[in-house]
Design a protein around this nucleic acid. Sequence first.
RNA 1: GCUUGCGUGGUGUAGUGGCCCAUCAUUUCGGGUUUUCAUCCCGGCGACCCGGGUUCGAAUCCCGGCGCGAGCACCA
Length: 471
Amino acid sequence: MERKVQTRREGLPELPNLDDRKPVLRFAPNPNGPLSFGHSRGLVINGEYAKNLDGELILRFDDTDTTVKPPMLEAYDSIPKQQEWLCGFAAHRIVIASERMEHYHEYAYKMLDGQFGYVCTCSAEDFKVHRVGMTECPCRDNSRDLNLERWAKMNDPNEYQPGDAVLRVKTDMTLKNPALRDWPAARIQTNPHPRVGDRWRVWPLLDFQSAVEDYLQGVTHIIRGKDLMDSTRKQTLLYSHFGWKYPETIYWGRVKVHEFGAFSTSQMKKDITAGLFDGWDDPRLPTLSALSRRGIQASALRSFWIELGLTQKDIAVPLSTLYSHNTKQIDPRAPRLAFVRNACPIILTGDLPRSGTIQSHSDTEMLPRQYSIDEGVWIEQEDSGKPLRLKDLCDIDENGNVESIDRSDKRSVVHWVAGGIPSKLTIASGQEIDIVEGILENNSHPVGTIVQLERIGYAIIEDDGLLMVHD
RNA sequence: GCUUGCGUGGUGUAGUGGCCCAUCAUUUCGGGUUUUCAUCCCGGCGACCCGGGUUCGAAUCCCGGCGCGAGCACCA
């Protein structure tokens, strides 16, 4: 009798129906702002599959809305950079939807020509009545020629105006799922697009633009949030009209990170403008630039998302999970440094080595730290008033008299600074930001170095002080 | 309301009929190493939503219930 061996699956599950193909995956954010923590899941998962299976990752800007979520020009530069930082490689292709409008128009025309699409002049409210009541709207049976004529009117500034007409995909008004009934594919927008201005008047909606583009790019697998499940169903109906085969689709559930609360790109934009936050990399924000600034490693983000996997469960994870991944990445390389909060001077009397060196890291070969003591050292207010072991130096009594060079008993070990420079440690916790003044040990680590502040936690060196990474 | 999806320890996750009195990680607790309350190592606690059914056998299949999420936009 053959026994199956119990094995635990590591990493991401296999891609379904891959056969011998190289997968083509895509991540399609709206460039209405820089990427945030939430985006990083799509980037990591799609990127990992592309990398591991020798496939391709397409970074696509779904920027066909100029009204509700207008594109932000800087995002076209920052997003590819952040994608490369996070994935560890640059996307194989970058597609900008607003520059591919002729394709969408071409297929819109084909839809009308093939009579599986129609121009609808019902108002949104009127159409809702048809959708809910499972009845067909008057525009639905218009002839091919009339539809083409109305399509021309949609594209003509002197004819239909925004709201007057939309392009719909003919599905079936009696479909069980109301979301699928003759869904809209394109509408009129007159707000100029920051990249292509007012060259186009009729813009595709996500479900149409994305579906056509996935076909044109040869996307094999779509991995996205399960909130887009109905999108798949709509697009599958469109694909069958065109006679195309829809890509394999995989979904993940909703993720909540308690500490991040509810942020949206547009809300952040508003709050930054209002001065509530310093910028997109304000350490309180869940943006990728803020996380990177705070010393969160791309590799930690990757292992974090890979560990969460691709289940459709809605989950809530604490930030401590991400931090534990990050600690594994940064600890082996983080030089130790002393930072004394609420510094309190203590004069040392007696014999002790007035200068010397201390290890920067017990496990690796790093240049040691040097110290030189004149009269005394700084210790934390909280530690003062009792016999102490000054770490790597000597035992003292509560008044600073040196009692022993070697460790003589179990008294508590504390960190200290000789000389040093006044500095501040910025700690972002949730929406709050705390600044702790203190004395930092002399050092020559460049800006951007992640250090471990002894007995406190990890921090990153910035131009004007320290920024807490996590403890 | 209609549609659709999900329910394994505190939090995540593996598991597609017998390996499972259930995997791994994290959190927490205890211990060890360490002249840091860190890192590292060892150990403990702790779970298959409920009720039926199918089966020799169910976390795994079926039905019902309950709970939670998402969609029903001229946003993405």
